[in-house]
Simulated scan of single mutants.
Amino acid sequence: MVEARSGGAPTVLRVVLGKRLQDLREKAGLSFEQAAAALDVTHATVRRMEKAEVGLKIPYVEKLLATYGIADATEIEGFVSLAREANRPGWWHRFREVLPDWFSAYVSLESEANLIRGYQPAYVPGLLQTEEYARAVLRAGMPHACNDDIDRSVALRLERQSLLTRENAPTLWVVMDETVLRRPIGDDPRVMRDQIGRLVEATALPNVRLQIIPFAAGPHPAMYGPFHIFRFPIPELPDIAYAESLVGAQYFDQRNDVSQFLEALDRMCAQAAPAHATEDILGGFRKEI
């Protein structure tokens, strides 16, 4: 399981480099204890570096590479350069006052994925929300937050959306429950009408696929809550599943765990209305508001 601990959520690159260090250690036939002895630290430090739970100290990285038998100066320089880049905060660091560590990891994964799949039972995914809809949802979820924090959270959410129209944009494939469209959000019906209009626009994007599960489809495998699955164009990085709660989130990267999320999502896609019908379905809901 990938963890986001206090003290800085891992960037995707840090996760990748941690896995590379693990591979190098195992190929060298060294235990955690043996690697730690070279650094004069506890074995827990090496474990945490490999799991991306701590930053990559450059002297530690250089010493480990030498211990693992890496002698090529160009290879060492390249790895160290990537380690320095991995330690730099992501663009979302500007919003750190309103962004908990457990969600910083999510934004990092989202930014690097080439495929984002998910299920949303209660609200429109953040990447597709209008500003007014986002403000209403965030206010409901953070009832004690001051207006400045809500404003910053909305700004973060809107900035995240730019990834859908960037060069080499990821594919976003989301299944939404009919509840999402029937629950009124905001004080004015216009908020929901505009939000549904935004979803209609999104269906025209070549990299966005939306499906809606109607009430008539009955029960499905993920009625317990929302989740997302990230896939990356990086060989070392496995698919990662994300499940959120009121107080935090869990990130799963073990094949058996992620397979269960994938199977549930595939079953829901089969139960949902086909993507080519989504625009007409949205238009029907918009007329009802």
Score class of each variant (00 low, 15 high):
residue 3 E to V: 11
residue 8 G to Y: 05
residue 8 G to F: 06
residue 10 P to K: 04
residue 11 T to L: 01
residue 15 V to Q: 14
residue 17 L to T: 05
residue 17 L to G: 01
residue 18 G to A: 07
residue 20 R to M: 08
residue 21 L to H: 00
residue 24 L to N: 02
residue 28 A to V: 10
residue 39 L to M: 13
residue 43 H to L: 01
residue 43 H to M: 05
residue 46 V to Q: 02
residue 49 M to G: 02
residue 51 K to I: 06
residue 53 E to K: 05
residue 56 L to V: 08
residue 59 P to W: 01
residue 59 P to F: 02
residue 68 Y to F: 13
residue 68 Y to E: 11
residue 69 G to N: 10
residue 74 T to P: 05
residue 75 E to D: 15
residue 76 I to D: 02
residue 80 V to S: 03
residue 89 P to H: 11
residue 91 W to K: 00
residue 91 W to V: 08
residue 96 R to Q: 15
residue 96 R to G: 13
residue 97 E to G: 08
residue 98 V to F: 00
residue 99 L to C: 07
residue 100 P to E: 07
residue 101 D to G: 09
residue 103 F to M: 13
residue 106 Y to C: 01
residue 107 V to A: 14
residue 110 E to F: 04
residue 111 S to A: 13
residue 113 A to S: 12
residue 114 N to F: 01
residue 117 R to A: 07
residue 121 P to L: 06
residue 126 G to K: 06
residue 134 A to D: 10
residue 134 A to C: 03
residue 138 L to N: 05
residue 141 G to I: 02
residue 143 P to G: 10
residue 145 A to V: 04
residue 147 N to K: 06
residue 149 D to K: 00
residue 149 D to F: 04
residue 152 R to G: 09
residue 153 S to E: 12
residue 153 S to L: 13
residue 154 V to E: 10
residue 154 V to K: 09
residue 161 Q to E: 11
residue 161 Q to C: 03
residue 168 N to C: 04
residue 170 P to K: 11
residue 177 D to Q: 05
residue 183 R to C: 06
residue 185 I to Q: 00
residue 188 D to V: 03
residue 188 D to G: 10
residue 196 I to P: 05
residue 196 I to N: 08
residue 197 G to A: 07
residue 199 L to V: 12
residue 199 L to N: 10
residue 199 L to F: 08
residue 200 V to M: 15
residue 200 V to D: 06
residue 201 E to S: 10
residue 201 E to T: 05
residue 202 A to H: 08
residue 203 T to E: 04
residue 205 L to C: 09
residue 207 N to Q: 14
residue 219 P to W: 03
residue 221 P to K: 13
residue 232 F to H: 05
residue 232 F to C: 12
residue 233 P to R: 00
residue 233 P to L: 04
residue 234 I to Q: 14
residue 237 L to M: 15
residue 237 L to E: 05
residue 238 P to R: 03
residue 242 Y to F: 13
residue 246 L to S: 13
residue 252 F to T: 11
residue 254 Q to L: 09
residue 255 R to C: 09
residue 259 S to N: 14
residue 260 Q to T: 07
residue 264 A to T: 01
residue 265 L to S: 04
residue 267 R to W: 13
residue 267 R to L: 15
residue 272 A to W: 02
residue 277 A to I: 00
residue 279 E to C: 12
residue 279 E to S: 15
residue 282 L to K: 09
residue 285 F to A: 15
residue 285 F to T: 12
residue 288 E to I: 15
